[in-house]
Computed example of a mutant assay.
Amino acid sequence: MTDQDPHVLEGALPPPKNAHLFGHAAAEDFLARSYKSGKIHHAILLEGPEGIGKATLAFRFANHVLSHPEPTAAPDHLDTPDLSSPISRQIASGASHNLLHLTRPVDEKTGRAKTAITVDEVRRAGHFFSQTSGTGNWRIVIIDPADDLNRNAANAILKMLEEPPRRALFLVLSHAPGKLLPTIRSRCQTLRLSPLGDQDLGQALSALGLALDGGKTGEMVLDLSKGSVAQALKLLNYGGTEIITAFNDIMASEGPAARKAMHRLADVLSGKDSEVILGFFLEHLNDHLTDRARQSALSGDMEAADRQARLVSEIAEQVSISQAYNLDRKQTILSILDAAR
């Protein structure tokens, strides 16, 4: 097991330790005013693409609530967290008795995050509430993200949302709300966060010690990151720009040269500790094929659009089977590239 938290990208700050948040002032103001009114909903669903600051906002708001336990006496805005304060230190170390962070557990053997948040993890929330039931403090559960809840875990969370304990607050994160049980969504107040604009994205990266150049690489990062700091980090720190360039070259080439380039790309994507960049590539491939299907439909070629749309589903199924049965990753990638061409 490595020292690197598998939930945190290289170059990023863990959300509990991140004092910087960009591009979500309106959401911050809404949460602060709702809390101060004393009428805040017991479950807030923070929706938006991955890597735009939902978890940072959740921990920022949790810090605000725990620092100002009486709503009417709380400020009407969220201050930048004082990371040296006792509450901030407890939150950052995972030692707060009033805050529980539910996310995919880490496999102790591999050091990697497991594929789902299980019902055993959700039972921790039940234990958390039972232990703190007599304190009178706010008790906050951050579910990060709820998209990763398996069926049993989702049903267990649903029961808590239906009958929330007193002074309990659920901050439910979702990258893809369509994956959530409709009954979970219906019991939450939805707060949608938008992707970051170019200026906010640049400031967020600068706060992490990364500066975008004014050349093609900087333009490529701004274009392909789609307002997500996580995507920008994958492009900058995980070789994402090179992966996309190699993929584009493959799609534009033919014959032995294309085959050789496919093997080179497959070697990179199937190498040791390649999970992050492989996931990034598969997302890019899905977007590429979906866009190709859309363009075919707009041009009136419905047969091609249907064929390309089915290809998206077939590749997703192939990837799922390969992961489930631990099939040879390089051969799976080569097969996918063949199909995409």
Rank of each mutant, 00 (worst) to 15 (best):
P86L: 04
H97W: 01
R167T: 07
K179W: 02
A232I: 02
A113V: 02
D147P: 08
I117H: 11
S206L: 10
P195K: 11
G134K: 11
N137V: 00
A113Y: 06
T241C: 15
E314W: 10
T132Q: 15
T241F: 03
H263K: 05
Y35V: 03
A73C: 10
A125H: 07
L282E: 13
G38T: 13
I184Q: 01
G134A: 12
H101E: 05
N98A: 11
N98L: 01
N237R: 13
S96R: 11
F170S: 04
K39V: 02
R167K: 15
Y238A: 02
A25K: 14
A230W: 01
S93E: 15
S335E: 02
T118S: 15
S84M: 01
E317T: 06
E121D: 05
P86F: 10
L233E: 06
V229A: 12
V268T: 14
D29T: 13
D198Q: 13
Q189P: 06
G38C: 03
G38Q: 04
L334M: 10
D29P: 02
A146L: 04
D338K: 06
K39S: 15
N63M: 07
A116F: 14
A316D: 14
N326Q: 06
S85Y: 13
A316F: 08
P195M: 05
W138F: 12
A258F: 08
R33L: 06
T56W: 11
D306E: 06
A266D: 13
E242S: 11
E163C: 11
L100I: 03
H175R: 12
G209L: 10
L278E: 09
L334R: 01
L289D: 11
A154Q: 07
G202D: 09
H7I: 13
A153E: 05
A204L: 00
L102G: 00
I140M: 04
F247T: 01
N286T: 14
H127E: 11
I44V: 13
P6S: 14
Q203N: 15
D249I: 02
R307Q: 08
D249W: 09
L210F: 13
H42N: 10
R112C: 03
A246G: 02
I244W: 11
M160L: 14
I184P: 01
L265G: 01
G215R: 02
H20Q: 15
L180Q: 06
S88Q: 15
E47G: 09
A252T: 09
A43T: 03
I250L: 03
G23A: 08
Y325E: 03
S84T: 15
V229D: 07
A246K: 05
Q4N: 12
A230T: 02
L100V: 04
A266Y: 05
D148I: 02
S133M: 08
G255L: 10
T332L: 03
T80Y: 10
A316W: 04
L181A: 12
A309Q: 12
C188N: 10
D291F: 02
N98P: 05
S299Q: 15
I336G: 09
K330A: 08
I91E: 09
S274H: 08
M160Y: 06
V312S: 03
